[in-house]
Amino acid sequence: MLTLPDDLRGAFKDPMGPVYTDAERLLSEAGDPIVAVGDVVTYHLRVAGRDPDVAVIDGKTKREAVGAEIAAVLDGENRRIEVDNEPATLSTAMLDALVDALASDGPVVIYVTGEEDLATVPAIVAAPEGASVVYGQPDEGMVLVDVTPDSKRKAGELLGKLDGDTAAALAALGVDG
């Protein structure tokens, strides 16, 4: 549905919130529900005792398969939604899965064939105010984004800069485009 144009890649490099290296400290400041985007982030939150309400994972970190220890922690009994999402894109299936997972009563894992990196932006748009979206900042730590009217607006603006039918994407996320 949406693709990241090459000239916009830099806009996604800067953290959208504070960066943490301690999962317990991050969790003490996080809202509810928690959406985790990334295998290593999900691993650290689970090891710290908090299963994210929504975890978006692809079995990889930095384009390489996660190690056995991380994979073992990620393998669980949670409801699982499988989606295809090519690198540098946001598929309709990804957007639908985020909305479905956020509406679920229990923890949900969205398992992505392809790449989950851009899922942070629609997760912020779709999550309720008061939630937190946590994603990995390579070689730095975990970024905590509090879902507020301002963060939702900024994420919506970023989404709007992607190539494709952004109005349909926002509508799929429950937002008037």
Score class of each variant (00 low, 15 high):
residue 162 L to Y: 02
residue 129 E to P: 02
residue 97 A to D: 08
residue 42 T to Q: 06
residue 171 A to V: 12
residue 1 M to N: 00
residue 137 Q to V: 14
residue 111 Y to F: 13
residue 114 G to I: 12
residue 153 R to C: 04
residue 151 S to A: 14
residue 42 T to I: 11
residue 131 A to K: 02
residue 41 V to A: 09
residue 161 K to Y: 03
residue 170 L to R: 12
residue 13 K to D: 08
residue 35 V to D: 04
residue 145 V to L: 05
residue 76 G to H: 11
residue 173 L to N: 03
residue 64 E to N: 11
residue 25 R to Q: 15
residue 48 A to Y: 03
residue 115 E to C: 12
residue 170 L to T: 00
residue 1 M to T: 10
residue 10 G to W: 04
residue 43 Y to G: 11
residue 54 V to F: 01
residue 100 D to Q: 08
residue 110 I to C: 01
residue 144 L to I: 07
residue 131 A to L: 07
residue 111 Y to W: 12
residue 130 G to N: 02
residue 44 H to M: 13
residue 107 P to W: 04
residue 11 A to I: 01
residue 111 Y to P: 00
residue 118 L to C: 07
residue 44 H to L: 13
residue 50 R to F: 02
residue 91 S to L: 06
residue 93 A to Q: 08
residue 118 L to K: 01
residue 80 R to L: 14
residue 9 R to C: 09
residue 42 T to W: 04
residue 19 V to E: 10
residue 61 T to G: 13
residue 18 P to C: 10
residue 27 L to H: 04
residue 76 G to D: 14
residue 135 Y to P: 04
residue 102 L to W: 07
residue 153 R to Y: 12
residue 52 P to E: 13
residue 8 L to G: 06
residue 53 D to Q: 12
residue 166 T to M: 09
residue 127 A to V: 06
residue 54 V to I: 01
residue 82 E to V: 09
residue 123 A to P: 02
residue 30 A to I: 06
residue 135 Y to D: 14
residue 94 M to E: 05
residue 111 Y to N: 05
residue 60 K to H: 10
residue 27 L to N: 11
residue 82 E to Y: 08
residue 57 I to M: 06
residue 117 D to L: 09
residue 92 T to L: 14
residue 38 G to A: 10
residue 126 A to P: 03
residue 48 A to V: 06
residue 126 A to N: 03
residue 8 L to N: 09
residue 84 D to E: 15
residue 108 V to A: 00
residue 137 Q to Y: 06
residue 136 G to R: 03
residue 156 G to D: 10
residue 128 P to V: 05
